[in-house]
Design a protein around this nucleic acid. Structure first.
Lengths: 186, 186
DNA sequence: GAAAACATACCGTCTGGACGGTTTTATTGC
DNA sequence: GCAATAAAACCGTCCAGACGGTATGTTTTC
């Protein structure tokens, strides 16, 4: 008989809140030590409510990954649309989607999911499949050594932001982005 | 009154076994869902024995990180010794220590620890301090944009090997290494 | 009034780690 | 050289709390 119990029902919003809460808790504590109680509490929902939306813990993590990949796909497609040069187009879009400040809609989610991926082997598999698909899909335009190198550097920058291990001034970040972009054309 | 109880005591060897076991279990399941029981069993020691060497779980993970950083330092120092060119020397050593096949003594350990770092916030802090120290230490020779870019790419390659997300033929890996080395001189 | 969207209560299992015992190794005294 | 004693290196058991998940209500919504 809590307040949440009597408020207006908005299942889709609650679902998003749950994903949001799970994502930030993943960031703080890692996917392995993520607990259903904590997620439910952070989202302002009872555990029963959480389990109504996601039948078990694995489903919750799966949901996170689904949401994540959709957003990533969308961000990359959007970035590719405004790029006239075919060569390295995917690589530049990848750079923009993952690194350039402001280019990624909700930065926190990404970081959190990186950790979840590292933790759960089956999520790792799904992620691997996605990466391979992309690599096949853009083999015609983004298979050069430098393009691959740039994408690895983007991954490294991403990892750094997860670990918060590299404090970089904005000016430096811009220079790096410019150099990476430059390399993507060669 | 088990067999293990009566065998010859070799505390240092047991300690290493425990670290080894913890590392590979980290790789499989992530640091968050690492259990003392599993580590002890994998190392062929009782949980009591494990807790004799490491008073609690945090101490075990700390021990892993200590061991890891020592090895990394050693590998980098070793690689730097045989490099006559000062500019980018640290970056090339980092590349060799982390990426080049065979350059890293025990590959599994590194990967496992990456995950542990992602999980535990206080380990993350210690790692961050190490990275910052290195960056200050080699600011004179390895601060160029391209050097930083190369190090990020190495991190990305590392992440890829953890996630097993990039299946790369050896020839391609060699080409990448060569290109990265080349960039480290500019 | 049926179904969806929640909440509450509860259960079985797992996990960290405290504790006391036993055996091996090192040190000391003679 | 050899007991005697201390200390280190383990083992096995037990427990309190945490956690995932079930089962059963209660309230909205359609």
């Amino acid at each position: 008989m809590s307040i949440a119990h009597q408020r207006k029902k908005q299942p889709e919003a609650v679902r998003q809140q749950l994903l949001e809460a799970a994502a930030s808790l993943c960031l703080e504590k890692g996917a392995g030590s993520l607990t259903l109680d904590a997620v439910a509490a952070a989202a302002g929902v009872s555990k029963g409510g959480l389990l109504h939306h996601f039948p078990n813990k694995a489903a919750l993590l799966d949901g996170l990954l689904d949401d994540l990949m959709e957003r990533l796909d969308a961000a990359i497609r959007e970035a590719m649309r405004s790029d006239p040069e075919p060569h390295g187009r995917y690589t530049r879009a990848y750079l923009q989607a993952c690194f350039v400040p402001g280019g990624m809609a909700e930065e926190g989610r990404w970081k959190a999911m990186t950790m979840a991926l590292l933790g759960e082997p089956n999520l790792r598999r799904r992620w691997r499949r996605w990466v391979e698909e992309q690599s096949v899909l853009h083999a015609g335009t983004d298979a050069s050594i430098d393009c691959e190198l740039v994408r690895f550097a983007v991954d490294g920058l991403w990892l750094g932001s997860v670990l918060e291990s590299h404090a970089m001034p904005p000016e430096r970040a811009r220079m790096l982005a410019r150099r990476l972009t430059e390399l993507s054309y060669s």
